[in-house]
């Protein structure tokens, strides 16, 4: 069976894009106090799977971020610092 007949993990999908990931994160979300975060929604709806739930703890990594802005609008604004990557970094699309 070809790998194409099974669902890809999000990492395998993201790996198909062109990336120039900044060494500094462009999104910061404090994870020590997770009160008020829509944890399940972030984990399921971030198209890049940047948010992962382990038990009821959320972990975040900015590397595969596709800069859609979803987490910015469903997280209280004092709980997230959200900017676009600078210097043309981040994802580059060709066929979308």
């Amino acid at each position: 069976m070809s790998t194409l007949e099974k669902p890809f993990k999000i990492e395998d999908l993201l790996q198909r894009n062109i990336w120039d990931v900044d060494e500094e994160p462009h999104i910061e979300i404090p994870l020590d106090d997770q009160e008020g975060l829509k944890k399940k929604a972030l984990a399921l709806l971030c198209p890049a799977g940047c948010y992962t739930l382990i038990g009821d703890r959320l972990i975040f990594s900015y590397e595969g971020c596709v800069e859609c802005g979803l987490c910015r609008i469903i997280t209280p604004s004092d709980k997230i610092r959200w900017t676009y990557p600078r210097s043309g970094k981040g994802v580059t699309y060709r066929y979308t």
């Binding site: 669902p7 890809f8 999000i10 999908l13 829509k38 399940k40 929604a41 984990a43 399921l44 709806l45 971030c46 198209p47 890049a48 799977g49 979803l70 609008i73 469903i74």
Partner: peptide, 23 residues
């Protein structure tokens, strides 16, 4: 987004958006 967040938080939604695309 509004409805999806609601469904996810209440536990009705189990599949991620990229999982739905793959399905």
């Amino acid at each position: 987004v509004g409805r999806a967040v609601e469904a996810a938080e209440k536990g009705f939604l189990r599949t991620s958006i990229h999982g739905m695309v793959e399905k």
